[in-house]
Computed example of a mutant assay.
Amino acid sequence: MFTIGDFASLGRVSVRMLRHYDSIGLLPPAAVDPHSGYRYYTADQLGRLNRVIALKDLGLTLAQVRAILDDAVDLVELRGMLRLRRAQLEAQLAADTARLSSVEARLHMIETEGRMTSQDVVIKKIPPIRVAELSEVARSYDGADIGPVLTPLYPELFRRLETAGVNPAGPALAWYDRAEDGDGVVVHAGVGIEEGLAAAGDVAVVELPAITAATTIHHGSMDTADRSLQVLARWIEENDWRPDGYARELYVKYWPEEADKGVTELQLPVRRV
């Protein structure tokens, strides 16, 4: 048997934690010296300790952990619970990583205020375009919310078009609308297709209307697109135009694995003041 100190080291927990688990009946020692009161544990008890820690990491209270263990959760069930928790943590990590990128982009914008680049802004008449598209709703227009929703839509869109035997007729693009209930933003992932094509398998076919847009070329990852949008905003304000909706994004060159090499034309609908 092991002393409480040795058992704590083997289980990578504190002695104080083991004493607490003993006091609530969650993990009593295998034996207690009647004279000294010293607690002793066996190697077999490491299995229960590992289950206690694993279940606690799932977010369960110690009372819930005790109820589950006393009801003899088997290894298969425990493995399933841990895999679910792992998936939840991975999703949270991905969301936090995206939000960190968004924070860094906005921090850079703040740090470069007053010394923005002189990107060329051009007013263009964008003609109507027929596109095949898939859409989902994002929580907000913030890059950290848009990216995880938009990015997976393109592989699925191209997969469905290939299945339907429809060939894209232009670069991919994205555009946005306010959700009808006002809660979030509708994210559209599209690609141009042949004029007159009324259907493209199990994806929607729509015609985007002609717009007058203030345009600029954004180089690099879309995580930093807010910088270019700020250039557009300043140019619009200084030249007596007014924005008329969300910007379209035309992906002139884009590789998901090399996002920093991307070339995107931002097309912000505008009208005269």
Rank of each mutant, 00 (worst) to 15 (best):
I236E: 02
G184F: 09
D226Q: 15
I146H: 07
P209S: 14
I211F: 04
R85I: 06
T97F: 08
Q64I: 01
E104T: 13
G147W: 08
V131A: 13
P34I: 10
M116V: 12
L82T: 15
P34R: 07
L150R: 13
D181W: 06
S102E: 08
V166K: 06
E237N: 11
R272E: 05
L82Y: 10
Q119P: 07
G245D: 12
L82C: 15
T215S: 13
F2T: 03
E136F: 02
L55R: 04
R115A: 14
A94I: 09
F7G: 04
I146E: 06
P168F: 12
E180N: 08
D145V: 11
V52P: 06
R51T: 01
A138V: 02
E90P: 12
R99D: 01
D96N: 07
E195P: 09
A247E: 06
A189M: 08
W235P: 10
M17H: 07
L62P: 08
D74N: 15
T117G: 11
D96R: 07
G262H: 09
R160V: 07
L58T: 15
S140V: 03
T215A: 12
Y21F: 03
M109W: 05
R227S: 09
V185H: 02
E238R: 08
E162S: 15
Q88E: 04
V273N: 13
N239M: 08
T42R: 15
Q64C: 03
R16Y: 01
L55N: 03
D240K: 02
R272I: 05
L268F: 04
T117R: 13
E180K: 10
E258Y: 02
V52Y: 05
W241Y: 04
V52M: 07
E237G: 10
